[in-house]
Every structure is written in structure tokens, then in C-alpha cells.
Design a protein around this nucleic acid. Structure first.
Lengths: 357, 357
DNA sequence: TTGTAGGCGTTATCAT
DNA sequence: ATGATAACGCCTACAA
């Protein structure tokens, strides 16, 4: 059904009112082609008068372009997805780029049920380009993205790398970020460093593991697999992982955690156990979200430029719409932008100088 | 330019391939009208074979419906909008409703520069319905929303009330939420209760002020305007507002703050001043975001059902697309859904029993 | 500088 | 149960 109670002024009416042809109205509205200033203002006045706004729908249809940049998000019912710092920042960055380029931002929720399938967003012409967030390295996902590439749809994977493929990606050097984090812990005198990581289907988790290993090797420490823990990035999972650290704690003098939220869960558990702060392992977390500053002790954390990532990804992607040359090479030499992370040191990884609040 | 390197299968090709008319293809794809099972499967096979997906663009054009629910967000460059708990939760709620109803979610960023103007989203047919978030009671905004109503565009204002108008709204009873918060402080023995509020152009700020006043009156306390502070909901503004509380602190034994982030800023300042926790005023904040649990001391906070608000708003709004009767009355008896907030008590407002961590 | 007219891929109505 | 066809509102190549 028609969802509105009003009538929309059409180009035809404007043309009649202004006493020109419809084509002229189009030219004026789009500012193309030469035209007499008089005609122009006549048309604009008519449009103003009639409240005419060109239909984006019809325009898209005629141009065969939706004008939308799609962003695929993991759909997890009730998961309060946006609450996660990661997605929030990224979307803000994408939003700001999209806006400047005159596109609209269409949010697309990936379903956990149905098999992954991204191409139909293009086939249905819902989007002109697609940014894929929260991607995981799983067979279905790889396949779905491969299809996008084969069909040469403009897309970009963010914060995820698929080894062996060459997809256009904007990513962060999590290997180096993690290496720095763990090296810092070693420099602080730690020799038994635990690692609470996220699921390895995220390449950023795998990358962090590499960085961790690298730092240990460089510090002549050996990797003890009983020091490896896995969570799902939620606070709760950090809280639960801490349980498993219990018996190692006297030994474990350092801890690297893959995001702030899990680290906060760990801290909660430590506090519950009434471990004195001086006895906490030295901790470095990841993301450097707002929360890192306000925990007790404040968390050292690896800052990830999510906002910039989103902005860069969107800009790159939309750029190819205006640059035929870029489009030609987009898939042959896929973009692989690699941003740097930066370790921010706070009390959680320093000496026993925690403010005892 | 054409942004893709592939060709899209059209209905015509499917029709030819299947040896039927285009109309039949449409019927099959939309599952309308009677049809022989044989024809149906023939068409479906052809579609499958050719990789045909009906063009959402063309469909929207023909149906004169975009299939999009628009969500207006305040645009603040670099403001990391989504990081705010408020918007994050709301969008998650809207997203989940929209998805179920088969709509798409279009994000629209309000500009701070240009005068407010929402109607053109409808005139340009970018959206079939509109949810307005982060609205403020300012002349331009009122005017813009009035126009929506006059033209009978389906829209909904969320978490904001315009006194004297009757716009369709989904809101929270912030008067009652605040009254509870402050009454709780009074019950805890506080008699000099400060209030750090947000800008009064947000009706929820004004409502909180009413609740504060109400509670004071009920507790036979008088309102001292030197106990009123204003911030802009950011942590920094809380941090700065705390400065102004300095000299009142010995007296001020209670503090009500309009959101968690500002409260966190206040706590930071207190900690910087090295005020012992036992001497903090008893604090109740607002929103009950994730952060409230992890501060030291954990913040008592008024829980606001943002997620539900978003979901309810979107559901209500999309419902009117399927219900002519509802649409008819939508503007005559505008929805005014009023959800309840709930006080969550934590250590920050209890006796001197803070865990000294 | 402006007008004419064909086409875009559906939906929906009317025949058959 | 299916086919033919007129809209839908705009863009754009071409004609004038």
C-alpha cells in the first residue's frame, strides 16, 4: 500500500508550470549542459513553488545505480551489536565518508542461519558497493566473497585478511601491534605471559597470536600452550577465562588480552578474588576503547584506528565509482591498506605503582 | 559510470529461457496469483540458471516504495557518534525490527549547518518511513517535524517530547526515572543533592529536572540552584563540571548525573583530587550502560530500555504500512508510547561500604 | 540552448 | 493459468 497521504510533484508538472520541456527541468536540476540563466531560474522557481524534489528512486532506476553503500554487519539477535566499540567506531568512520561523497549508507545484517551470500545485494541492485565487517575465515564466507570478486562487484573487507586470496582489504597490522604489546610486557620484566585471544577464525586473532609468538621468541621465552586462553570478545568470556587462569596465577606475571572488554571481565574476576592489585599480572589489552581509561587499574591497550579504517575503506571504495582506471585495476591489484596500531601504556602494565584508589 | 563489470540477468531473459511471459515470471517471483506447479518450477529453474534476482531498484520504482526505513542521526564530524551507548542500543533495536519486517535500514546524518529539513527524504522517496533520533527542542526542528506531520509522512520521534505538539513519539518516563533516583538518594540520607544535567533542549533533560524537583519537594528539601550543573553528556564535560562542584563538596552529600559518561568524568576528577571514596557524595547516574558496572565504585544508574525503544518504534512505524486503519489514525491520535526506566542500585549510592578494591 | 523520444525493469490491469 | 501492455519518473542521445 501507499504509505503516505500526500501527492508528490513530478517533473512533468514542473515543466508545464515553467513552460519548458521535461528534459530542461532535468538539466536544471542536475546542473548539466548549457542553459539560459533565465530558463534556469524559471525552472527553479517552479520547482520551489510546487515543492518538487526529484525522485531518488526514479533517478536510481534510470541511472542504474542505487546510490547506496552497503555495510554488512554480523547479525546476532539481541546482541547489541553496536555497543561494541569496534563496530561503533567503524560505522562512524564510514558514515562520515559516505556523507561527503553523497552516497547513502545501507545497513545489511548478515544472517547466522542462511548460508552466506553477498552477491544478491548487487544483483538486486540494493547497493553500488559493499563493505564487509566482522568477517570470519570460514568456508562459506570465503566462497561468498570469492563470488563477489569473480563477478567484479566493488567490495572491500575490513579488519580481516584471507590468506591465499587476494581480496581488496583495509586491515590493521595486528601482528606488529601484538608484538609490541608483548614485548612491552617482557621489558616490564614478565617472563610468564598469558594470552587471552579471540576465536581464530578472525584473522586478527590469528595475527595477534603470531605477534605474541614473535615477541616471545625475540625475548627468548618459550610458548607454553597452557598459557593460551580463548574467549569471544565479550566481557563475560573474559570473566570466565579468568577462572582458568586461577592456578597459573602465582606464576603468570603478564597477560595479553585481545580486547578491552575481555580484559575488563578478567579484572572483575580478579577483584572478586580479592587479589591485591600489586599481585595482578601486568596486563595489556587491545582496542583502546573508552573503557580502557576508566578501569582500575587503567588498562594499557593497543590503540586501533577503527574510525580511520572505516573512513578509508569507504573513501577508497566510493572513489572507484568516479575513476574508471581505478576500477579496472581494482581486482587485478587489489588494495591492501595496512594501518598501524599503537600501544598505549597505562597503569595496568607498569610497576607496582597502581593508584590504590 | 557503471560501477560493475558484470551483466545482470533480467526478467525478460528468464521469460524467454523458461518459455513463458514476463508477467508469469513476476508472478512466480512474487508468489502471487494461481499458477501451475510445473510453470513455477520451470521459471525458478530458469532464474536459478541465469542467476536472476529481481531488481529491488526497478521494483521500488514500479511500486513507488523505497523499502527503506530511514533513521536520522545527529551528525557531528569526528564525534564517534555510535560510540555513545544511547545510539548504539537504539540502532540495534531498530535494526532487529527492520530486518524482520523485510525493510532495509538507511542511515541519514542530520547536518548541523543546513537548516533542519526532513521532508525531502520522503519527497525524494529515499525512505518510506522515518525515525528521528537525537532530536532537540529548537524552533527549526519543531518546524521541520511539523511539516512531516502536516504532509502526513509516517515518522516517529524517539526519546524526545515536544510539548504542545502532538507528534507520534516513543519516549521514556524520565520524570519518574529521575524522581526515583533522587528519592533513593534522599532515602540514603542525602540532603544536599547536586544535579549534573544535560542541555535542556533535550526534553529528557527537562524531564529529569522535573523529576529531581519532584523528589526534592516530596522529601521536603529545597532546590538550591547553585547545585545545578550542566554538561553535554560527554565524559569531558563531566570532568569539567566536577571542577565547579569543588567548593560545594563538603556539603554536597548526593549527586544525580544525567548519564554514565558524565558521571565517569566526575569520578575521574574526584580520584584526581584524591578524595577518599568514603567522602564521595552518593552518586546515581543515568542510562545504565556497560560502563556503569565497571567503574570504581560501580555506579548506581537508571536503566533505560534503549534497545526496546528502538525496536518498538520501528515496529510501530512499519506496521502502519500494512494497516490502512492504523495509518488513518496515525496522525489524528498520535502514538505516545511511554516506557519505564528502572533504578539499578550499586555501590556508588550505598553506605560507606565501597569495596576499597 | 532547448525539445523529442526511446529506454530502464518492474508492477498491475485487462484480456484471453 | 497465462499473456499482452500501459504505466512509473527519470536520463540522455539526438534532433532542431
Amino acid at each position: 500500500m501507499e504509505m503516505s497521504g500526500y501527492l508528490i510533484a513530478t517533473r512533468k508538472e514542473v515543466a508545464e508550470f515553467a513552460g519548458v520541456s521535461e528534459a530542461t527541468v532535468s538539466r536544471v536540476m542536475n546542473g548539466v549542459g548549457p542553459m539560459k540563466e533565465e530558463t534556469r531560474s524559471k525552472v527553479l522557481r517552479a520547482a520551489e513553488k510546487l515543492g518538487y524534489v526529484p525522485s531518488a528512486l526514479a533517478r536510481s532506476f534510470a541511472r542504474n545505480r542505487s546510490g547506496n553503500l552497503g555495510v554488512v554487519l554480523p547479525y546476532i539477535p539481541k546482541a547489541r551489536l553496536f555497543s561494541s566499540y569496534y563496530f561503533s567506531e567503524m560505522l562512524s568512520g564510514i558514515g562520515s565518508a559516505v556523507r561527503e561523497q553523497g552516497y547513502d549508507l545501507l545497513l545489511l545484517f548478515r544472517s547466522e542461519q542462511e548460508p552466506q551470500e553477498y552477491e544478491s545485494f548487487f544483483l538486486a541492485q540494493k547497493v553500488d558497493a559493499l563493505i564487509i565487517l566482522g568477517s570470519r575465515d570460514e568456508p562459506g564466507e570465503r566462497e561468498a566473497i570469492r563470488k563477489l570478486k569473480e563477478a567484479r562487484h566493488p567490495f572491500l573487507v575490513v579488519n580481516q585478511h584471507f590468506k591465499g586470496e587476494s581480496f581488496p582489504e583495509v586491515d590493521v597490522d595486528h601482528v606488529e601491534g601484538s608484538r609490541q604489546a608483548v614485548t612491552h610486557l617482557i621489558q616490564q620484566g614478565c617472563s610468564h605471559i598469558g594470552f587471552l585471544n579471540g576465536p581464530l577464525t578472525y584473522s586478527n586473532s590469528a595475527d595477534r597470536l603470531s605477534g605474541y609468538q614473535k615477541a616471545l621468541a625475540e625475548g627468548d621465552l618459550h610458548l607454553d600452550s597452557s598459557y593460551l586462553f580463548e574467549g569471544n570478545f565479550s566481557r563475560r568470556s573474559g570473566y570466565e577465562a579468568a577462572e582458568k587462569m586461577r592456578e597459573l596465577l602465582p606464576e603468570m606475571d603478564g597477560l595479553f588480552v585481545s580486547n578491552d572488554r575481555m580484559a575488563i571481565g578478567v579484572l572483575q574476576k580478579f577483584r572478586e578474588w580479592q587479589i591485591p592489585e600489586e599481585k595482578y599480572p601486568k596486563i595489556v589489552a587491545y582496542d583502546d576503547s573508552d573503557a580502557a581509561e576508566i578501569t582500575v587499574p587503567p588498562l594499557s591497550s593497543v590503540r586501533v584506528p577503527f574510525y580511520e579504517m572505516g573512513m578509508i575503506a569507504a573513501n577508497k571504495l566510493l572513489q572507484i565509482g568516479n575513476d574508471a582506471e581505478l576500477f579496472r585495476t581494482w581486482f587485478d591489484e587489489p588494495v591492501r591498506e595496512l594501518l598501524q596500531a599503537e600501544l598505549i601504556v597505562r597503569a595496568s602494565s607498569r610497576g607496582n605503582t597502581h593508584v590504590n584508589n
